[in-house]
Design a protein around this nucleic acid. Structure first.
Lengths: 107, 107
DNA sequence: GTATTTTTGCTATAATTGGGTAAAATTAAA
DNA sequence: TTTAATTTTACCCAATTATAGCAAAAATAC
């Protein structure tokens, strides 16, 4: 699976939009689009909903893809072991569990 | 598996250190230790190596634990699906693959 | 060779973060 | 219960990180 940036590039091209046209739709200027597509900069999370609409794709899946890419890059940057995502999975289950029992999150 | 903050608290107590004593060793003041143990703030990544020494534990494993906690919290905060970490795993493999083929990372 | 599209450099500003001080609250000990 | 030690809260700040924009260079298409 390609990076999130490459995914955006591919989908944008499928739609036949230039970076400038696409940028106008999602309200980001052309240089920023370029940097996003080349994974030099990250699309802000706030734009994901609009992005899903523009690409006519499922928002939740898009968000998962976005964060998966983010986590993978961070894990790579900090030289985490291959086990880190499995551990994160365990940790997520734990968080879900304690938050279904008691009410709130405290972090 | 408990949060990273609770892990620190547990290990600190095993050593019989007060937050202040532990803080002196790791060079962070007492209130900050409290916030870290209660998952209100995050220990800076730069302290992980020293932390591993103090706790006499493996640095790589500690780092994995730290990032697993970070990823899990972020996934929870943004309401990612349970699939996100598995996706991240796939993404990590992809990054490792392209970086063993070509030389550098560009992100 | 010109026009369109994409990328790079640089800059300004907003947001986040890790940690600091002082003081309040809690817990333990006398 | 008073005092002493420990932990937590409220508020603040410096430094990094992110966002976003313009101008101009580079690349691609026509």
């Amino acid at each position: 699976m390609a990076s999130f940036g490459k995914y955006i590039k591919t989908e944008r091209e499928k739609k036949g939009w230039s970076q400038t046209e696409f940028g106008a739709l999602i309200k980001i200027n052309t240089p920023a689009i370029s940097r996003i597509e080349n994974d030099k900069k990250r699309l802000s999370v706030a734009k994901l909903e609009l992005l899903a609409e523009l690409f006519k794709t499922d928002y939740i899946q898009l968000k998962d893809r976005y964060f998966a890419d983010k986590f993978a890059k961070e894990a790579y940057e900090y030289k985490c072991s291959e086990k880190v995502h499995a551990l994160a999975e365990t940790q997520s289950s734990y968080i879900r569990e304690i938050n279904s029992k008691q009410g709130k999150m405290k972090f």
